[in-house]
């Protein structure tokens, strides 16, 4: 049972998976409730471009990819606001896919780092270095601090951005900070989960929690808990089954979603039966 914990790389992967799960679970609440899933999906792809460019230019990976992602988010935002006839989904499609293509183009030109490319695409949790663990830990703390101190304002902005502004909430500031935190989250999670599956880590814990509660506070706690638990469970199981850790984390989270779905279906059925009994 405890055998894999004898390896340093496994312990690191285990801790990182828990942190990334909790971090994505936390940010995912807002992503899901603001219906930004597609932005999350697009941004994670866009950042591959940033990651590759910073690799080629020997620039710090986290700063390079994070900045690239943040700028893509701002670009999407301004384009959507200035060309309303386009619609957010089309703009996201244009900007993030173009950015992804930049990454793929550079990789195909150099061909020397296909191994890292695969890690970024599919996630390679057991190759995590101590500095990656540090980056994940710092980002998790930053996101937790951000959400803690802006919790009530963020709730209002997520619920109704227009009216939140009328009540004196600095909506644009919060939106920009949130985009920054989301970009940071995606950058540090990229190597763990992989670009192609990252949106699942963001969306599934929050969606699962949403099936279980109608209260925002409980939703946040549940989503973080589900994310963290599926992260560590996914890594642990993947060690024994010898399958990709990123994919396995996503599969475990999906299992949790299926259970929550079954539970909510059962609850509705029971409520209906009780309602009928009350009529008799």
């Amino acid at each position: 049972m405890l055998e894999p914990f004898a390896y340093d790389f496994f312990v690191r992967g285990f801790v990182v998976a828990g942190l990334v799960g909790a971090l994505c679970g936390l940010m995912g609440v807002y992503v899901v409730l603001r219906r930004m899933s597609y932005i999350g999906h697009g941004l994670s792809h866009a950042m591959l471009g940033g990651a590759v460019v910073s690799y080629v230019m020997a620039f710090n990976f986290y700063l390079g990819a994070g900045l690239w992602g943040f700028l893509s988010a701002l670009l999407i935002n301004t384009t959507v606001q200035r060309r309303r006839m386009l619609g957010a989904d089309a703009v996201i499609g244009v900007i993030t896919t173009a950015s992804f293509a930049v990454g793929v183009a550079i990789i195909s030109r150099y061909r020397t780092f296909t191994r890292n490319f695969e890690a970024a695409l599919l996630g390679e949790i057991l190759g995590i270095q101590p500095q990656d663990l540090l980056a994940v830990a710092v980002m998790t703390v930053l996101a937790a601090v951000f959400v803690f101190f802006c919790y009530r304002r963020l709730l209002f902005v997520t619920f109704d951005p227009e009216v939140a502004g009328y009540y004196g909430v600095p909506v644009q500031w919060l939106d920009s900070l949130f985009a920054l935190a989301l970009a940071g989250t995606i950058v540090v999670s990229m190597q763990v989960i992989g670009v192609t599956m990252l949106v699942a880590a963001l969306v599934i814990p929050a969606a699962t929690a949403r099936l279980l509660t109608d209260s925002f506070h409980r939703l946040v706690l549940l989503s973080v808990g589900i994310g963290a638990l599926s992260g560590v469970a996914g890594v642990y199981i993947s060690y024994y089954l010898d399958i990709s850790s990123g994919a396995n984390v996503v599969l475990v989270t999906t299992g949790a979603f299926a259970l929550a779905y079954a539970w909510s279906a059962l609850r509705h059925r029971l409520a209906a039966i009780q309602g009928l009994r009350a009529l008799d």
Binding site: L33, V147, F148, F149, C150, Y151, R152, R153, L155, F156, T158, F159, D160, E162, V163, A164, Y167, G168, V169, R210, T213, D214, S215, F216, H217, L219
Partner: peptide, 29 residues
């Protein structure tokens, strides 16, 4: 606001909505 503009599927309770009236102040959650 007009009730039409409210997202009724959003996970908040009545008390949580009412407390939003204070959201612009204070920094504790």
């Amino acid at each position: 606001p007009q009730v039409e503009t409210v997202d009724w599927n959003f996970p908040v309770t009545v008390e949580q909505v009412v407390l939003m009236g204070f959201a612009g102040r204070g920094w504790l959650p």
